[in-house]
C-alpha cells in the first residue's frame, strides 16, 4: 500500500484499484477543533480538484477537494458521531471516504511522505 499527499493537505492510501482519503495532521492542526464533517454520498462521482467534503471547525468551514477522480465507495460513518476523530487520529481513524481510482495517472503528480514533510516545512 502506498500513501500519497497533496498540496491541499490530503492523504490518499492506494490499495489496488481503490483509495482511502483523509486530511493530514498538519491540516487538522491548522483547522483547529472540528465539529462537523460533511462527506460525499456513496455512489457519487467526484472530480480531481473539485469539492468533495466540507470540514467545519469552531472557526470556519473549509472545503476538502478530491485528490483524484473516481466514485465514492464508502464514507466514514464514525465521523458523524465523533467529528473530533479528525483531530485525534487524522491519518487513521479519522479517514473521510474510500473511492475508486478513475485514472491512475492522476497519482503521478502527488507527493510521498518525505516530499510532503519538506512541503509543510517550507510553509
Amino acid at each position: 500500500m502506498a500513501r500519497y499527499f497533496t498540496e491541499e493537505h490530503e492523504w490518499i492510501d492506494v490499495e489496488g484499484d481503490s483509495a482511502t482519503v483523509g486530511i493530514t495532521d498538519y491540516a487538522q492542526g491548522q483547522l483547529g477543533d472540528i465539529v462537523f464533517v460533511e462527506l460525499p454520498e456513496v455512489g457519487s462521482v467526484i472530480d480531481k480538484g473539485k469539492d468533495a467534503a466540507v470540514v467545519e471547525s469552531v472557526k470556519a468551514a473549509s472545503d476538502v477537494y478530491a485528490p483524484i477522480s473516481g466514485e465514492v465507495m464508502e464514507s466514514n460513518e464514525a465521523l458523524e458521531e465523533d467529528p473530533a476523530l479528525v483531530n485525534t487520529s487524522p491519518e487513521e481513524a479519522g479517514w473521510f471516504f474510500k473511492m475508486t481510482i478513475g485514472d491512475k495517472s492522476e497519482l503521478e503528480g502527488l507527493m510521498d511522505a518525505k516530499a510532503y514533510k519538506s512541503f509543510c516545512d517550507s510553509l
Binding site: F36, E38, E56, A60, A61
Partner: peptide, 11 residues
C-alpha cells in the same frame, strides 16, 4: 438568537 439541531453550524 437561533438554536440549531445537529452539528452543522450556520455561519
Amino acid at each position: 438568537g437561533l438554536a440549531l439541531e445537529g452539528r452543522l453550524p450556520a455561519r
